[in-house]
Amino acid sequence: MARKKKRPRPIPEIEIIETLQPAPSDLDFGTAEKPKLWYLVWTTPRGEAKAADGLAEAGCQVFWPHFERVIRRKNKPEIKNLISTFPRYLFASGLPRLAQRLTVVGPDGKTGITIDGRPIEDIREIDGIVAVVRNSQGWCSVPRAIIEMVAAYQGTVAHPVPPAVPVRRLDAEPGDRVVVIDGPFASFQATVADVLGLEVVRVLVDLFGRQTPVDLDPRQIEVRERAKGVDDRFAA
């Protein structure tokens, strides 16, 4: 007796809605005489929200660029997640002053600070924080223009994430000079450091006085200058 063929399962109807969350309306940069410095905080994987809450509890002003992703499936509960625009990074101002290494102290340089009533001695004791981006001189302050550019991308009200630029073939190779054509770093010059499969290109962008690695979608960059020897290889 012939077996009945199983009917293929219908493809679930999925709707994904991504909405950029607005930047704080009260970003404080201080005055020309007394500028207020902003820093780039590196967090644990998916720890941006915890880090933002902890820094706010410590009296810092926080700017966490992110968007809300809503996934709707037929006959299934709705799923909501907050996704970082820059995974594992956020901006913070008014950080406790650096004493020794990563140790933090209050404004008077002596007393400590507390989180939920618990005194902390190391910035990494704030849940979700790995470190503050730094160089040999200490924590790197982020130029105001960069923060304002990211804030403009996030907008002043919640709005849909801009659609990706049209798909096109990309022949980027490590060493190529490129320009970012989409996203918060649009118009920035960069150098390709690595091509990670088909969906991620790691580039080095000149930020904070040094080359900072940033992972981008290949559709977000445009090759302007080939690395030495690359043109010959593609011509072969």
Rank of each mutant, 00 (worst) to 15 (best):
V130M: 13
A92E: 04
T114R: 14
P77Y: 02
G106A: 14
W139R: 10
L90W: 02
R72I: 15
K110G: 02
P96T: 13
V70Q: 14
A58L: 14
F67D: 06
G106E: 06
D108W: 07
G106I: 01
F67K: 13
L102S: 11
A92T: 05
V133T: 10
V130A: 11
M149P: 00
R72M: 11
R73K: 15
P162F: 07
F86D: 03
V70T: 15
T111N: 13
K74L: 14
E78I: 15
Q154Y: 00
R88W: 05
L102P: 00
R69W: 00
K80V: 12
N75R: 15
P77C: 03
V161N: 06
S141L: 01
D108K: 12
G94N: 06
V133S: 02
Y153I: 10
C60I: 05
W139D: 00
F67A: 03
I147M: 08
I115P: 00
Q100M: 11
L102M: 09
L82S: 10
F86N: 08
P96F: 08
V132M: 01
I120S: 07
I120Y: 06
S136Q: 10
E148A: 02
S84F: 01
I123N: 03
V133E: 07
F63H: 01
V157S: 08
R144S: 04
G155L: 06
F91A: 09
F67S: 02
R69H: 01
E121C: 05
R88C: 14
I79Y: 01
A131G: 07
A92N: 07
D116L: 06
T111L: 06
S84Q: 02
Q137N: 09
V104M: 03
F86I: 12
T85E: 15
S141F: 09
P87F: 08
Q61H: 10
L102K: 11
